[in-house]
Design a protein around this nucleic acid. Structure first.
Length: 523
RNA sequence: GGUGCUAUCGUCUAGUGGCCUAGGACAACGGCCUCUCACGCCGUAAACCCCGGUUCGAGUCCGGGUAGCACUACCA
Protein backbone atom coordinates (compact mmCIF):
# COMPACT_ATOMS: atom_id res chain seq x y z
CA UNK A 1 0.00 0.00 0.00
CA UNK A 2 1.48 3.29 -1.10
CA UNK A 3 0.46 6.18 0.99
CA UNK A 4 1.57 9.74 1.25
CA UNK A 5 4.31 10.24 3.80
CA UNK A 6 3.07 12.46 6.57
CA UNK A 7 5.02 12.87 9.77
CA UNK A 8 4.57 15.11 12.73
CA UNK A 9 6.54 16.76 15.43
CA UNK A 10 4.32 17.06 18.48
CA UNK A 11 5.97 18.82 21.40
CA UNK A 12 4.42 19.85 24.69
CA UNK A 13 4.62 23.52 25.55
CA UNK A 14 6.14 22.83 28.95
CA UNK A 15 9.32 24.84 28.56
CA UNK A 16 12.17 25.33 26.14
CA UNK A 17 12.52 22.78 23.39
CA UNK A 18 15.19 20.34 24.46
CA UNK A 19 18.01 19.61 22.04
CA UNK A 20 16.89 15.97 21.89
CA UNK A 21 13.49 17.20 20.79
CA UNK A 22 15.17 19.27 18.13
CA UNK A 23 16.85 16.17 16.79
CA UNK A 24 13.53 14.33 16.71
CA UNK A 25 12.04 17.24 14.78
CA UNK A 26 15.01 17.20 12.41
CA UNK A 27 14.74 13.48 11.65
CA UNK A 28 11.04 13.86 11.01
CA UNK A 29 11.73 16.78 8.71
CA UNK A 30 14.46 14.96 6.79
CA UNK A 31 12.26 11.93 6.38
CA UNK A 32 9.33 13.99 5.15
CA UNK A 33 11.40 15.96 2.67
CA UNK A 34 13.16 12.92 1.33
CA UNK A 35 9.87 11.26 0.55
CA UNK A 36 8.22 14.38 -0.76
CA UNK A 37 5.78 14.19 2.13
CA UNK A 38 4.43 16.57 4.75
CA UNK A 39 5.91 17.71 8.01
CA UNK A 40 3.26 18.67 10.55
CA UNK A 41 3.55 20.46 13.83
CA UNK A 42 1.01 19.81 16.51
CA UNK A 43 1.03 21.12 20.06
CA UNK A 44 0.26 18.55 22.72
CA UNK A 45 -1.02 20.68 25.54
CA UNK A 46 -3.34 18.24 27.26
CA UNK A 47 -1.75 18.84 30.63
CA UNK A 48 -3.02 22.25 31.56
CA UNK A 49 -0.99 22.27 34.78
CA UNK A 50 2.33 22.07 33.00
CA UNK A 51 1.74 24.75 30.43
CA UNK A 52 4.46 27.38 30.30
CA UNK A 53 3.67 30.70 28.62
CA UNK A 54 5.87 31.45 25.67
CA UNK A 55 6.93 27.85 25.15
CA UNK A 56 4.90 27.45 21.99
CA UNK A 57 6.34 30.58 20.43
CA UNK A 58 9.78 29.43 21.51
CA UNK A 59 9.42 26.05 19.80
CA UNK A 60 8.29 27.58 16.54
CA UNK A 61 11.01 30.18 16.55
CA UNK A 62 13.66 27.56 17.26
CA UNK A 63 12.52 25.43 14.33
CA UNK A 64 12.44 28.48 12.13
CA UNK A 65 15.96 29.48 13.14
CA UNK A 66 17.23 26.00 12.34
CA UNK A 67 15.51 25.85 9.00
CA UNK A 68 13.23 22.97 9.91
CA UNK A 69 10.26 23.85 7.78
CA UNK A 70 6.68 23.07 8.70
CA UNK A 71 4.18 22.25 5.95
CA UNK A 72 1.09 21.89 8.03
CA UNK A 73 -0.07 22.77 11.51
CA UNK A 74 1.38 25.56 13.57
CA UNK A 75 4.32 27.58 12.34
CA UNK A 76 5.85 31.01 12.38
CA UNK A 77 4.56 33.31 9.70
CA UNK A 78 7.43 34.01 7.36
CA UNK A 79 9.56 36.88 8.54
CA UNK A 80 7.48 37.47 11.66
CA UNK A 81 7.03 36.01 15.10
CA UNK A 82 3.33 35.52 14.60
CA UNK A 83 1.93 32.03 14.70
CA UNK A 84 -0.21 30.80 11.88
CA UNK A 85 -2.12 27.57 11.41
CA UNK A 86 -2.10 25.97 7.99
CA UNK A 87 -3.81 22.82 6.81
CA UNK A 88 -7.12 21.03 6.62
CA UNK A 89 -6.77 18.90 9.73
CA UNK A 90 -6.88 21.55 12.42
CA UNK A 91 -7.08 22.75 15.02
CA UNK A 92 -3.49 21.80 15.70
CA UNK A 93 -3.52 22.53 19.40
CA UNK A 94 -4.94 19.61 21.33
CA UNK A 95 -6.55 21.87 23.90
CA UNK A 96 -8.70 23.17 21.04
CA UNK A 97 -9.81 19.71 20.00
CA UNK A 98 -11.92 18.79 23.04
CA UNK A 99 -15.13 18.09 21.10
CA UNK A 100 -13.27 15.85 18.69
CA UNK A 101 -11.96 13.68 21.51
CA UNK A 102 -15.39 13.39 23.15
CA UNK A 103 -16.81 11.30 20.38
CA UNK A 104 -13.84 8.95 20.36
CA UNK A 105 -13.98 8.50 24.11
CA UNK A 106 -17.63 7.65 23.66
CA UNK A 107 -16.84 5.21 20.88
CA UNK A 108 -14.47 3.30 23.13
CA UNK A 109 -16.94 3.36 26.01
CA UNK A 110 -19.77 2.09 23.78
CA UNK A 111 -17.69 -0.68 22.29
CA UNK A 112 -16.60 -1.87 25.71
CA UNK A 113 -12.92 -1.02 25.16
CA UNK A 114 -12.99 1.54 27.93
CA UNK A 115 -14.76 2.17 31.21
CA UNK A 116 -15.43 4.94 33.66
CA UNK A 117 -13.50 5.00 36.92
CA UNK A 118 -14.26 7.10 39.99
CA UNK A 119 -11.22 6.31 42.10
CA UNK A 120 -9.74 9.56 43.32
CA UNK A 121 -6.03 10.29 43.06
CA UNK A 122 -5.91 9.99 46.85
CA UNK A 123 -7.53 6.57 46.80
CA UNK A 124 -5.09 5.39 44.17
CA UNK A 125 -2.18 6.73 46.14
CA UNK A 126 -3.39 4.90 49.23
CA UNK A 127 -3.76 1.73 47.20
CA UNK A 128 -0.21 2.02 45.91
CA UNK A 129 1.07 2.57 49.42
CA UNK A 130 -0.82 -0.44 50.64
CA UNK A 131 -0.01 -2.85 47.82
CA UNK A 132 3.53 -2.82 46.45
CA UNK A 133 3.68 -2.66 42.67
CA UNK A 134 -0.03 -2.02 42.45
CA UNK A 135 -1.21 -1.73 38.88
CA UNK A 136 -4.68 -0.79 37.67
CA UNK A 137 -5.32 -3.70 35.31
CA UNK A 138 -7.34 -6.85 34.64
CA UNK A 139 -6.28 -8.35 37.96
CA UNK A 140 -7.27 -5.38 40.07
CA UNK A 141 -9.93 -3.38 38.28
CA UNK A 142 -12.72 -5.46 39.73
CA UNK A 143 -11.75 -4.28 43.20
CA UNK A 144 -11.95 -0.62 42.26
CA UNK A 145 -14.70 1.96 41.95
CA UNK A 146 -15.62 1.91 38.30
CA UNK A 147 -18.38 1.16 35.84
CA UNK A 148 -17.30 -2.46 35.76
CA UNK A 149 -18.00 -2.95 39.43
CA UNK A 150 -20.95 -0.60 39.88
CA UNK A 151 -24.46 -0.81 38.58
CA UNK A 152 -25.47 1.37 35.67
CA UNK A 153 -27.75 3.32 37.97
CA UNK A 154 -24.97 4.01 40.42
CA UNK A 155 -22.75 5.24 37.65
CA UNK A 156 -25.41 7.51 36.21
CA UNK A 157 -26.12 8.88 39.65
CA UNK A 158 -22.47 9.73 40.28
CA UNK A 159 -22.19 11.26 36.84
CA UNK A 160 -25.32 13.32 37.43
CA UNK A 161 -23.87 14.55 40.71
CA UNK A 162 -20.87 15.81 38.79
CA UNK A 163 -18.46 13.41 40.44
CA UNK A 164 -14.99 13.61 38.90
CA UNK A 165 -14.05 10.57 36.89
CA UNK A 166 -11.59 9.26 34.35
CA UNK A 167 -12.02 6.95 31.41
CA UNK A 168 -9.66 4.02 31.39
CA UNK A 169 -8.66 1.75 28.55
CA UNK A 170 -9.61 -1.86 29.20
CA UNK A 171 -6.51 -3.86 28.38
CA UNK A 172 -7.24 -7.53 27.74
CA UNK A 173 -4.85 -9.68 29.75
CA UNK A 174 -2.15 -12.04 28.63
CA UNK A 175 -1.79 -11.20 25.00
CA UNK A 176 1.50 -10.77 23.18
CA UNK A 177 1.34 -7.43 21.44
CA UNK A 178 3.63 -7.02 18.46
CA UNK A 179 5.04 -3.64 17.53
CA UNK A 180 6.96 -3.27 14.32
CA UNK A 181 9.67 -0.68 14.71
CA UNK A 182 11.58 0.62 11.68
CA UNK A 183 14.77 0.92 13.71
CA UNK A 184 14.52 -1.98 16.14
CA UNK A 185 12.51 -4.56 14.27
CA UNK A 186 9.82 -6.59 15.99
CA UNK A 187 9.19 -5.78 19.65
CA UNK A 188 6.86 -8.01 21.62
CA UNK A 189 5.31 -7.09 24.94
CA UNK A 190 2.76 -9.02 26.93
CA UNK A 191 -0.35 -7.04 27.71
CA UNK A 192 -0.17 -8.15 31.35
CA UNK A 193 2.47 -5.56 32.06
CA UNK A 194 0.29 -2.80 30.62
CA UNK A 195 -2.07 -1.02 32.97
CA UNK A 196 -5.51 0.34 32.20
CA UNK A 197 -4.25 3.72 31.09
CA UNK A 198 -6.29 6.81 31.74
CA UNK A 199 -7.48 8.14 28.40
CA UNK A 200 -9.62 11.03 29.54
CA UNK A 201 -10.02 13.05 32.69
CA UNK A 202 -13.25 14.85 33.44
CA UNK A 203 -11.52 17.24 35.82
CA UNK A 204 -10.19 19.34 32.95
CA UNK A 205 -12.26 17.78 30.18
CA UNK A 206 -9.11 16.77 28.31
CA UNK A 207 -7.75 13.48 27.06
CA UNK A 208 -4.33 12.22 28.09
CA UNK A 209 -1.44 11.90 25.69
CA UNK A 210 -2.24 8.38 24.63
CA UNK A 211 -5.77 9.00 23.45
CA UNK A 212 -5.15 12.41 21.93
CA UNK A 213 -2.06 11.19 20.17
CA UNK A 214 -3.71 8.21 18.52
CA UNK A 215 -6.85 10.10 17.54
CA UNK A 216 -4.89 12.99 16.09
CA UNK A 217 -2.38 10.85 14.25
CA UNK A 218 -5.27 8.99 12.71
CA UNK A 219 -7.28 12.07 11.81
CA UNK A 220 -4.22 13.86 10.50
CA UNK A 221 -3.35 10.83 8.39
CA UNK A 222 0.10 10.41 9.84
CA UNK A 223 2.02 7.67 8.05
CA UNK A 224 5.14 7.45 10.23
CA UNK A 225 5.59 8.14 13.89
CA UNK A 226 9.21 9.05 14.53
CA UNK A 227 9.74 9.79 18.20
CA UNK A 228 12.10 9.25 21.13
CA UNK A 229 12.84 5.86 22.58
CA UNK A 230 11.11 6.79 25.83
CA UNK A 231 7.89 6.01 23.97
CA UNK A 232 8.79 2.47 23.06
CA UNK A 233 7.30 0.93 26.22
CA UNK A 234 3.93 2.52 25.50
CA UNK A 235 3.92 1.63 21.81
CA UNK A 236 2.04 -1.63 22.45
CA UNK A 237 -0.68 0.34 24.18
CA UNK A 238 -0.91 2.53 21.11
CA UNK A 239 -1.18 -0.51 18.86
CA UNK A 240 -4.01 -1.76 21.05
CA UNK A 241 -5.74 1.59 20.80
CA UNK A 242 -5.56 1.61 17.01
CA UNK A 243 -7.09 -1.83 17.06
CA UNK A 244 -9.84 -0.84 19.48
CA UNK A 245 -10.78 2.03 17.20
CA UNK A 246 -10.75 -0.25 14.17
CA UNK A 247 -7.88 1.65 12.56
CA UNK A 248 -5.29 -1.10 12.40
CA UNK A 249 -5.07 -0.98 8.61
CA UNK A 250 -4.03 2.67 8.60
CA UNK A 251 -1.88 2.55 11.69
CA UNK A 252 1.33 4.51 11.16
CA UNK A 253 4.73 2.88 11.07
CA UNK A 254 6.80 3.43 14.19
CA UNK A 255 10.43 4.44 14.55
CA UNK A 256 11.83 4.96 18.03
CA UNK A 257 14.96 7.06 18.10
CA UNK A 258 17.85 6.43 20.49
CA UNK A 259 18.17 8.91 23.33
CA UNK A 260 20.71 11.66 23.77
CA UNK A 261 22.78 10.90 26.85
CA UNK A 262 24.84 12.96 29.28
CA UNK A 263 28.43 13.58 28.11
CA UNK A 264 29.73 12.27 31.41
CA UNK A 265 28.26 9.65 33.69
CA UNK A 266 24.99 8.03 32.87
CA UNK A 267 21.48 8.98 31.97
CA UNK A 268 19.45 11.12 29.68
CA UNK A 269 20.79 14.52 28.80
CA UNK A 270 18.98 17.04 30.95
CA UNK A 271 18.69 20.74 31.40
CA UNK A 272 20.88 20.58 34.49
CA UNK A 273 23.75 19.02 32.54
CA UNK A 274 24.02 22.14 30.46
CA UNK A 275 24.33 24.35 33.51
CA UNK A 276 26.73 21.94 35.14
CA UNK A 277 29.03 21.37 32.17
CA UNK A 278 28.74 24.82 30.69
CA UNK A 279 27.09 24.32 27.33
CA UNK A 280 23.57 24.92 26.08
CA UNK A 281 21.04 22.13 25.79
CA UNK A 282 18.49 24.38 24.12
CA UNK A 283 18.52 25.89 20.64
CA UNK A 284 17.60 29.39 21.81
CA UNK A 285 17.94 31.22 25.07
CA UNK A 286 14.77 30.83 27.08
CA UNK A 287 13.34 32.95 29.86
CA UNK A 288 10.91 30.76 31.71
CA UNK A 289 8.12 32.97 32.94
CA UNK A 290 6.81 30.26 35.19
CA UNK A 291 9.84 29.54 37.33
CA UNK A 292 11.95 32.58 36.44
CA UNK A 293 14.90 30.56 35.18
CA UNK A 294 16.98 31.49 32.17
CA UNK A 295 18.45 28.78 29.97
CA UNK A 296 21.25 29.47 27.53
CA UNK A 297 20.84 28.69 23.87
CA UNK A 298 22.98 27.67 20.93
CA UNK A 299 22.03 30.70 18.96
CA UNK A 300 23.11 33.11 21.68
CA UNK A 301 26.33 31.17 22.22
CA UNK A 302 27.35 31.95 18.68
CA UNK A 303 26.38 28.72 16.97
CA UNK A 304 25.42 28.76 13.34
CA UNK A 305 22.16 26.93 12.62
CA UNK A 306 23.82 24.85 9.89
CA UNK A 307 26.34 23.59 12.42
CA UNK A 308 23.70 22.66 14.97
CA UNK A 309 21.76 20.78 12.31
CA UNK A 310 24.82 18.92 11.07
CA UNK A 311 25.98 18.09 14.57
CA UNK A 312 22.58 16.83 15.65
CA UNK A 313 22.05 14.85 12.48
CA UNK A 314 25.21 12.86 13.16
CA UNK A 315 24.31 12.13 16.76
CA UNK A 316 22.62 8.81 16.18
CA UNK A 317 22.76 8.70 12.42
CA UNK A 318 25.60 8.19 9.97
CA UNK A 319 25.74 8.24 6.21
CA UNK A 320 27.02 5.34 4.17
CA UNK A 321 30.49 6.83 3.64
CA UNK A 322 32.99 8.81 5.69
CA UNK A 323 31.35 12.15 5.02
CA UNK A 324 30.70 14.22 8.13
CA UNK A 325 29.87 17.64 6.74
CA UNK A 326 26.38 17.76 5.33
CA UNK A 327 24.20 20.58 4.17
CA UNK A 328 20.50 20.26 4.85
CA UNK A 329 19.92 19.28 1.22
CA UNK A 330 22.55 16.59 1.42
CA UNK A 331 21.00 15.29 4.62
CA UNK A 332 17.62 15.13 2.95
CA UNK A 333 19.14 13.10 0.17
CA UNK A 334 21.20 10.79 2.38
CA UNK A 335 19.03 10.34 5.45
CA UNK A 336 17.63 6.93 6.13
CA UNK A 337 15.95 5.48 9.17
CA UNK A 338 17.77 2.20 8.81
CA UNK A 339 21.05 3.98 9.29
CA UNK A 340 19.93 5.37 12.64
CA UNK A 341 21.83 3.78 15.53
CA UNK A 342 20.00 1.74 18.10
CA UNK A 343 22.08 2.75 21.09
CA UNK A 344 21.89 6.06 22.90
CA UNK A 345 24.44 8.69 21.98
CA UNK A 346 26.46 10.63 24.51
CA UNK A 347 26.31 14.28 23.76
CA UNK A 348 29.79 15.36 22.62
CA UNK A 349 29.98 19.09 22.98
CA UNK A 350 33.58 19.24 21.73
CA UNK A 351 32.53 17.86 18.40
CA UNK A 352 29.81 20.44 18.25
CA UNK A 353 32.47 23.14 18.45
CA UNK A 354 34.34 21.58 15.58
CA UNK A 355 31.22 21.57 13.44
CA UNK A 356 30.69 25.21 14.17
CA UNK A 357 34.27 25.98 13.21
CA UNK A 358 33.80 24.22 9.89
CA UNK A 359 30.72 26.25 9.02
CA UNK A 360 32.20 29.46 10.35
CA UNK A 361 35.26 29.33 8.09
CA UNK A 362 33.03 28.60 5.12
CA UNK A 363 31.26 31.89 5.57
CA UNK A 364 32.52 34.97 3.77
CA UNK A 365 34.28 37.68 5.75
CA UNK A 366 31.40 40.02 5.01
CA UNK A 367 28.79 37.60 6.33
CA UNK A 368 30.81 37.08 9.47
CA UNK A 369 31.28 40.81 9.87
CA UNK A 370 27.52 41.17 9.83
CA UNK A 371 27.20 38.59 12.60
CA UNK A 372 30.11 39.98 14.57
CA UNK A 373 29.04 43.61 14.47
CA UNK A 374 26.65 43.46 17.44
CA UNK A 375 29.30 41.74 19.55
CA UNK A 376 31.88 44.29 18.56
CA UNK A 377 29.70 47.28 19.30
CA UNK A 378 28.77 45.79 22.61
CA UNK A 379 32.40 45.24 23.55
CA UNK A 380 33.51 48.66 22.47
CA UNK A 381 30.77 50.26 24.48
CA UNK A 382 31.88 48.33 27.51
CA UNK A 383 35.38 49.59 26.88
CA UNK A 384 33.96 53.06 26.63
CA UNK A 385 35.63 53.66 23.31
CA UNK A 386 34.18 56.01 20.79
CA UNK A 387 35.14 54.71 17.42
CA UNK A 388 33.42 54.75 14.16
CA UNK A 389 33.47 51.27 12.79
CA UNK A 390 34.25 50.63 9.17
CA UNK A 391 32.60 47.39 8.14
CA UNK A 392 35.22 46.77 5.50
CA UNK A 393 37.90 46.89 8.18
CA UNK A 394 35.89 44.50 10.33
CA UNK A 395 35.59 42.07 7.44
CA UNK A 396 39.31 42.40 6.81
CA UNK A 397 40.36 41.59 10.36
CA UNK A 398 37.90 38.70 10.44
CA UNK A 399 39.56 37.32 7.33
CA UNK A 400 42.82 37.44 9.24
CA UNK A 401 41.51 35.69 12.34
CA UNK A 402 38.52 33.49 11.58
CA UNK A 403 40.69 30.39 11.21
CA UNK A 404 41.41 30.41 14.90
CA UNK A 405 37.94 30.65 16.38
CA UNK A 406 35.02 28.30 16.78
CA UNK A 407 32.39 30.93 17.44
CA UNK A 408 31.59 34.41 16.25
CA UNK A 409 31.83 36.01 19.71
CA UNK A 410 35.34 34.60 20.09
CA UNK A 411 36.36 36.87 17.26
CA UNK A 412 36.52 39.65 19.82
CA UNK A 413 39.39 38.04 21.70
CA UNK A 414 41.24 37.61 18.43
CA UNK A 415 40.61 41.04 17.01
CA UNK A 416 40.26 43.42 19.96
CA UNK A 417 43.73 44.92 19.47
CA UNK A 418 42.75 46.08 16.01
CA UNK A 419 40.16 48.32 17.56
CA UNK A 420 41.65 49.18 20.91
CA UNK A 421 45.34 49.86 21.60
CA UNK A 422 46.84 47.69 24.33
CA UNK A 423 46.90 49.35 27.72
CA UNK A 424 48.65 46.53 29.42
CA UNK A 425 51.04 43.88 28.25
CA UNK A 426 50.72 40.17 28.80
CA UNK A 427 53.16 39.14 31.51
CA UNK A 428 54.04 35.76 30.08
CA UNK A 429 54.69 37.22 26.66
CA UNK A 430 56.93 39.88 28.12
CA UNK A 431 58.88 37.40 30.12
CA UNK A 432 59.53 35.23 27.13
CA UNK A 433 59.70 37.70 24.25
CA UNK A 434 60.76 41.08 25.62
CA UNK A 435 64.54 41.03 25.87
CA UNK A 436 67.03 43.34 27.46
CA UNK A 437 67.81 44.85 24.05
CA UNK A 438 64.18 45.21 23.03
CA UNK A 439 63.75 48.87 24.04
CA UNK A 440 66.80 49.73 21.94
CA UNK A 441 65.59 47.62 19.02
CA UNK A 442 62.19 49.26 19.14
CA UNK A 443 63.64 52.74 19.28
CA UNK A 444 65.74 52.02 16.20
CA UNK A 445 62.75 50.43 14.47
CA UNK A 446 60.69 53.48 15.28
CA UNK A 447 63.12 55.73 13.46
CA UNK A 448 63.03 53.39 10.49
CA UNK A 449 59.24 53.36 10.39
CA UNK A 450 58.85 57.07 10.83
CA UNK A 451 60.99 57.68 7.77
CA UNK A 452 59.07 55.11 5.73
CA UNK A 453 56.66 56.33 3.07
CA UNK A 454 55.39 53.17 1.44
CA UNK A 455 53.38 51.38 4.12
CA UNK A 456 52.58 48.22 2.17
CA UNK A 457 53.42 44.87 3.69
CA UNK A 458 56.00 44.17 0.99
CA UNK A 459 57.72 47.50 1.47
CA UNK A 460 57.84 47.17 5.24
CA UNK A 461 59.19 43.66 4.94
CA UNK A 462 61.85 44.86 2.53
CA UNK A 463 62.72 47.63 4.95
CA UNK A 464 62.83 45.79 8.25
CA UNK A 465 64.23 42.38 7.39
CA UNK A 466 67.53 43.58 5.90
CA UNK A 467 67.98 45.91 8.86
CA UNK A 468 67.55 43.04 11.32
CA UNK A 469 69.95 40.89 9.34
CA UNK A 470 72.54 43.63 9.01
CA UNK A 471 72.70 44.06 12.78
CA UNK A 472 72.19 40.37 13.50
CA UNK A 473 69.45 41.19 15.97
CA UNK A 474 67.53 38.03 15.22
CA UNK A 475 64.21 38.04 13.40
CA UNK A 476 62.32 36.35 16.19
CA UNK A 477 63.62 38.69 18.84
CA UNK A 478 62.74 41.89 17.02
CA UNK A 479 59.47 40.77 15.53
CA UNK A 480 58.12 39.40 18.77
CA UNK A 481 58.95 42.57 20.64
CA UNK A 482 57.30 44.55 17.85
CA UNK A 483 54.29 42.29 18.11
CA UNK A 484 54.00 42.91 21.83
CA UNK A 485 54.01 46.64 21.16
CA UNK A 486 51.13 46.34 18.72
CA UNK A 487 49.08 43.53 20.22
CA UNK A 488 50.00 43.52 23.87
CA UNK A 489 50.81 39.84 23.74
CA UNK A 490 52.58 37.21 21.67
CA UNK A 491 49.67 36.24 19.49
CA UNK A 492 47.76 37.33 16.44
CA UNK A 493 48.11 37.21 12.66
CA UNK A 494 51.17 38.01 10.60
CA UNK A 495 52.81 41.25 11.74
CA UNK A 496 52.56 43.06 8.38
CA UNK A 497 48.90 42.24 8.26
CA UNK A 498 48.53 44.01 11.59
CA UNK A 499 50.53 47.09 10.55
CA UNK A 500 48.51 47.20 7.37
CA UNK A 501 45.22 47.51 9.24
CA UNK A 502 46.60 49.80 11.94
CA UNK A 503 48.27 52.20 9.54
CA UNK A 504 51.46 54.16 10.01
CA UNK A 505 50.29 56.62 12.58
CA UNK A 506 48.72 54.12 14.94
CA UNK A 507 51.61 51.70 14.58
CA UNK A 508 54.15 54.30 15.54
CA UNK A 509 52.03 55.51 18.42
CA UNK A 510 51.76 52.01 19.81
CA UNK A 511 55.48 51.39 19.59
CA UNK A 512 56.19 54.64 21.39
CA UNK A 513 53.66 53.86 24.09
CA UNK A 514 55.07 50.41 24.56
CA UNK A 515 58.64 51.61 24.95
CA UNK A 516 57.51 54.06 27.58
CA UNK A 517 55.15 51.76 29.45
CA UNK A 518 57.21 48.59 29.40
CA UNK A 519 60.33 50.54 30.27
CA UNK A 520 58.70 51.45 33.54
CA UNK A 521 57.76 47.89 34.31
CA UNK A 522 60.18 45.81 36.25
CA UNK A 523 60.71 42.73 34.23
C1' G B 1 11.24 -5.00 41.81
C1' G B 2 8.85 -5.77 36.80
C1' U B 3 9.02 -5.08 31.40
C1' G B 4 11.53 -3.53 27.22
C1' C B 5 15.68 -1.61 24.53
C1' U B 6 20.92 -1.43 23.89
C1' A B 7 26.30 -2.96 24.00
C1' U B 8 33.09 -1.55 18.56
C1' C B 9 38.82 3.40 20.44
C1' G B 10 37.69 8.56 26.04
C1' U B 11 33.35 10.36 22.57
C1' C B 12 30.29 10.02 17.77
C1' U B 13 30.53 6.01 14.63
C1' A B 14 31.90 2.40 9.90
C1' G B 15 31.22 -2.72 9.87
C1' U B 16 24.82 -6.91 7.52
C1' G B 17 29.96 -14.28 8.07
C1' G B 18 35.91 -14.32 4.82
C1' C B 19 37.67 -7.52 1.83
C1' C B 20 39.22 -6.50 9.68
C1' U B 21 46.68 -6.86 10.78
C1' A B 22 38.81 -3.51 12.80
C1' G B 23 38.11 2.16 8.91
C1' G B 24 36.73 7.59 9.61
C1' A B 25 35.81 11.96 12.72
C1' C B 26 36.23 14.80 17.52
C1' A B 27 39.35 15.09 21.65
C1' A B 28 44.60 13.75 23.30
C1' C B 29 49.78 13.39 22.16
C1' G B 30 54.23 14.19 18.81
C1' G B 31 56.32 16.50 14.47
C1' C B 32 56.35 19.95 10.25
C1' C B 33 55.21 25.05 8.87
C1' U B 34 56.59 29.75 11.48
C1' C B 35 58.22 36.51 14.02
C1' U B 36 53.82 34.79 18.07
C1' C B 37 49.16 32.34 18.86
C1' A B 38 46.19 29.63 15.90
C1' C B 39 44.87 27.23 11.26
C1' G B 40 46.72 23.62 8.06
C1' C B 41 49.57 19.23 6.93
C1' C B 42 51.96 14.60 8.56
C1' G B 43 52.19 11.03 12.27
C1' U B 44 51.36 8.26 17.27
C1' A B 45 48.42 6.11 20.90
C1' A B 46 43.52 4.26 21.45
C1' A B 47 38.04 -0.31 20.86
C1' C B 48 34.95 -5.44 19.08
C1' C B 49 31.57 -6.25 27.53
C1' C B 50 32.18 -11.61 29.31
C1' C B 51 31.23 -16.94 28.62
C1' G B 52 29.46 -20.65 25.61
C1' G B 53 27.44 -22.35 20.81
C1' U B 54 26.74 -22.53 15.22
C1' U B 55 30.43 -22.43 11.18
C1' C B 56 36.10 -24.38 7.49
C1' G B 57 35.84 -19.20 9.34
C1' A B 58 32.32 -14.51 14.05
C1' G B 59 33.05 -7.76 15.70
C1' U B 60 29.15 -9.66 12.41
C1' C B 61 24.47 -15.31 13.65
C1' C B 62 22.33 -17.95 18.28
C1' G B 63 22.00 -18.74 23.76
C1' G B 64 23.30 -17.26 28.63
C1' G B 65 25.48 -13.78 31.77
C1' U B 66 26.90 -8.75 32.92
C1' A B 67 26.33 -3.64 32.43
C1' G B 68 23.90 0.82 30.83
C1' C B 69 19.48 3.17 29.60
C1' A B 70 14.18 3.86 29.18
C1' C B 71 9.41 2.95 30.95
C1' U B 72 6.56 1.49 35.08
C1' A B 73 1.28 8.84 36.77
C1' C B 74 -5.59 11.50 36.23
C1' C B 75 3.08 14.06 32.51
C1' A B 76 4.19 14.10 27.83
Amino acid sequence: MERRVRVRFAPSPTGALHIGGVRTALYNYLFARQHGGDMLLRIEDTDSTRFVPGAEEYILEALDWLGIGIDEGLRQKKGTHEIEAVGEHGPYRQSERREIYHQYVKQLLDSGHAYIAFDTPEELEAKRAEIPNFQYDARTRLQMRNSLTMSADEVSELLAKGEKYVVRFKVEPNEDVHVHDLIRGEVVINSNILDDKVLYKSADDLPTYHLANIVDDHLMEISHVIRGEEWLPSAPLHVLLYRAFGWSDTMPEFAHLPLLLKPDGNGKLSKRDGDRLGFPVFPLEFHNQKDGTVSSGYRESGYLPEAVINFLALLGWHGSGDQELYTMDELIKEFSLDRVSKAGAKFDYEKGKWFNHQYLIQKSDEELAELFMPVLLDQLKIKNEKLKIDKAIVAKVIGLTKDRVNFVPELWEQTNFFFVAPTEYDEKSLKKRWKEDSPRHMTELLALLEAQEDWSAEALDALVMPWIEAHEYGVGIVMNAFRICLVGAARGPHIWAITDVLGKEETIKRVKDAILTIGQLTI
